[in-house]
Simulated scan of single mutants.
Amino acid sequence: MHDAAWAAGFSALRVREGSDRVVASLNRPEVRNAIDQTMVDELHALADHLERHPALLILTGLPSDPDKGTKGIFASGADIAQLKERRRAEALAGINSTIFDRLAQLPLPMIAALDGFALGGGAELSYAADFRIGTPQLRMGQPETNLGITAGAGATWRLRELVGEPLAKEILLAGKILTGEQCLAAGLITELVEPAELLTAAHALADRIAAQDPLAVRLTKAVFHAPREAHPMIDTLAQAVLFESEAKFERMQAFLDKKNERKQDSK
């Protein structure tokens, strides 16, 4: 992987690009990766690139450093200093919700690799991902009501879809903070690994996705997120497109060739 030339001017994100994936790291260590306007702007630029050049996205934060004794962190939430000054007009602009929704709708899957704090807007950013992998040190929650506001960037509806209403209400209304183990038990993350293995696990998952046919993955994601009333027509249309793709013929022929080889070997 190499540093992405198109992201050379970024300051709140560090971006590395490979042939089939982009790794973007939130990079505001001085404020525990609080999400400010600069980070939002750079996430929009990242989304713009991935919409025009579809690739898998691994989104992560600051890694832990055992030598320095520092802990990893994904994002501690929105930048409270900026949030305190925002008024009704900024709330109606949906600054965070707009970019999180844009990331959720990227053509190819997004993987959030989570360590340390993923709170408030940081948690909501991770909910927009298709997959979440975490560490035992992960702490996820929504402290917004304690600050006199609501979780306005997706938690009030995405969290219910992810973990169910009872636990979502405990997180949103009672300020419950989940540990990494609790996130795994609730299905909020799909894998629990040590911090040193976090990116390795994210890349392993990306490898499995990359082994599938990209167009089939892209259309399956789009169909999965379509509203209920669009089914089954949208499934049928997506299948019709894929039935004409070269990859379908090549992959099915390869499957049949391998099956025939096994039959011959067993004789």
Rank of each mutant, 00 (worst) to 15 (best):
M1F: 05
D3I: 08
A4I: 00
A4V: 03
A7F: 01
G9I: 12
A12P: 02
V15H: 02
R16M: 06
D20M: 00
V22E: 02
V23M: 00
A24C: 07
A24T: 02
R28F: 09
R28L: 14
N33S: 10
T38E: 15
E42Q: 12
L43K: 04
L43G: 01
L43H: 06
H44M: 11
H44C: 10
H44P: 03
D48C: 06
D48H: 07
E51D: 05
E51W: 00
E51S: 08
H53Y: 10
A55L: 06
I58C: 03
I58L: 04
L59S: 06
L59H: 09
T60S: 06
T60R: 07
G61Q: 04
L62D: 05
L62W: 04
D67F: 01
K68M: 09
G69T: 12
G72V: 07
A75Y: 06
S76Y: 11
D79W: 14
D79I: 05
K84T: 15
R86K: 13
A93G: 15
A93K: 13
N96D: 15
N96Q: 15
S97A: 15
S97L: 15
I99L: 08
F100M: 12
L103A: 08
L106R: 00
L106V: 10
L106Q: 03
L108I: 04
P109C: 14
M110A: 03
M110D: 00
I111G: 00
D115C: 08
F117P: 04
A118I: 12
A118E: 03
G122N: 07
G122Q: 06
E124N: 04
L125V: 03
L125Q: 10
D130I: 01
D130Q: 02
P136L: 06
L138G: 01
R139W: 07
R139Q: 08
M140D: 07
Q142C: 11
P143T: 08
N146A: 15
G148K: 11
I149W: 10
I149C: 11
G154K: 01
T156A: 13
L159A: 15
L162Y: 09
V163S: 06
E170A: 15
L172W: 13
L172S: 14
L172M: 14
L173Y: 12
L173S: 14
A174W: 14
K176V: 12
K176L: 10
L178K: 02
T179I: 03
G180C: 05
C183K: 03
A186N: 04
L188D: 09
L188Y: 01
L192H: 03
P195D: 03
E197H: 02
A201E: 02
L205Q: 00
A210Y: 00
A210N: 00
A210E: 05
A211R: 04
L215I: 03
V217M: 03
R218G: 05
R218I: 00
K221D: 05
R228E: 15
A230E: 13
H231I: 14
M233S: 15
L237A: 14
Q239W: 11
Q239A: 13
Q239Y: 13
F243Q: 15
S245A: 13
M252F: 10
L256I: 11
N260R: 10
E261I: 01
K263H: 11
D265C: 02
K267N: 10
